[in-house]
């Protein structure tokens, strides 16, 4: 059938003077996105409104909280350094090689990420205190090596490390995935062993990722609470880190101090995240 000829010929939108707006796009996208940003900002604003500068200072001058602050900085730093030390070779192996059991190892790395924190703490406690034919790991470390783990600071570091390292491995793996393996191949034709190619060609390209992984590990260690509570306990001045402080202050009804410490932790986290952004790695996942 021929189309009816009495229909007006089609006119282009320019002829009709029609101009479409892009505003709805930005309104819808921005509106949905801002709900989350708004929630976080509201949370922080509420915290800040709840406390005053005076209360904040008073809380931070308490010796217990200062001790907790020192232990937090120290334990997070040690946990982060241990994490990057382990994550660099593991991330590299996972990124570069197809070997039997690779899928299994890949899954094991993720276990600390998906495991409920309390369960991780409980598992650590059981590992160190389970007698295997009369041998108890914690006892052996304490009696033979003079190294008290459970309910002491090494337990804090170990609890933080077990989660932080998983995140560091993920980051290092993405880092090495993004580095062209061909450079290492060519380096090997030039006379490098695999080790030399890794040290001299791959590693220098990975420094941004390594800093990102260390930062992420540090930030994860800062937020660690469940495993520390179970495995290291919450002894004031001994195994108390800032996340434990919030819990302890809250449990004795001292809301002001709990909020002050929370804000301190927010500030620490922000510093770490800003460092991460400045390094511009785009490896925040």
């Amino acid at each position: 059938m021929i189309e009816s000829s009495d229909e007006a010929p089609r006119r282009s939108s320019r002829e009709m003077g029609r101009r479409r707006s892009e505003a709805p796009f930005f309104l819808v996208m921005g509106g949905i996105s801002s709900s989350f940003i708004f929630l976080i900002v509201l949370l922080l604003a509420a915290d800040m409104r709840f406390t005053s500068v005076g209360e904040f200072k008073a809380a931070l001058l308490k010796p217990e909280i200062q001790a907790a602050f020192r232990l937090t900085i120290l334990s997070c730093t040690v946990a982060a350094l241990l994490s990057i030390w382990v994550a660099t070779p593991l991330g590299y192996l996972l990124a570069r090689y197809r070997f039997p059991g690779r899928l299994l190892i890949d899954t094991i790395v993720d276990i600390p990420i998906v495991l409920p924190p309390l369960v991780l703490g409980l598992s650590l406690l059981i590992l160190f205190h389970q007698p295997v034919g009369g041998f108890v790991l914690d006892q052996w470390l304490r009696d033979r090596l003079g190294f008290q783990v459970t309910f002491s600071w090494p337990a804090v570091v170990l609890a933080q490390f077990s989660v932080a390292c998983a995140f560091a491995v993920r980051t290092m793996r993405v880092t090495f995935d993004q580095i062209n393996p061909r450079s290492e191949d060519v380096a090997r034709t030039l006379g490098c062993t695999r080790g030399q190619a890794f040290m001299q060609v791959a590693l220098p390209q990975a420094w941004r990722g390594m800093i990102a992984a260390t930062t992420i590990a540090w930030a994860r260690a800062l937020g660690e609470f469940g495993p520390i509570l179970v495995f290291a306990g919450a002894t004031r001045m001994r195994t108390e880190v800032l996340s434990t402080t919030v819990f302890l202050e809250l449990s004795i009804g001292n809301l002001d101090a709990a909020v002050a410490v929370s804000l301190l932790m927010v500030a620490m986290a922000v510093v770490v995240l800003v460092v991460l952004r400045l390094l511009g790695t785009g490896l925040t996942s």
Binding site: S183, A187, T193, P204
Partner: peptide, 28 residues
Amino acid sequence: SPADREIGYVPQDLALFPTFTVAEHLQF
């Protein structure tokens, strides 16, 4: 191993070393 064969190889994507200078490529 590739290291022991002493063969010069120029791959299609060149795979230059991003952290090296030109001189360092020639000296590596």
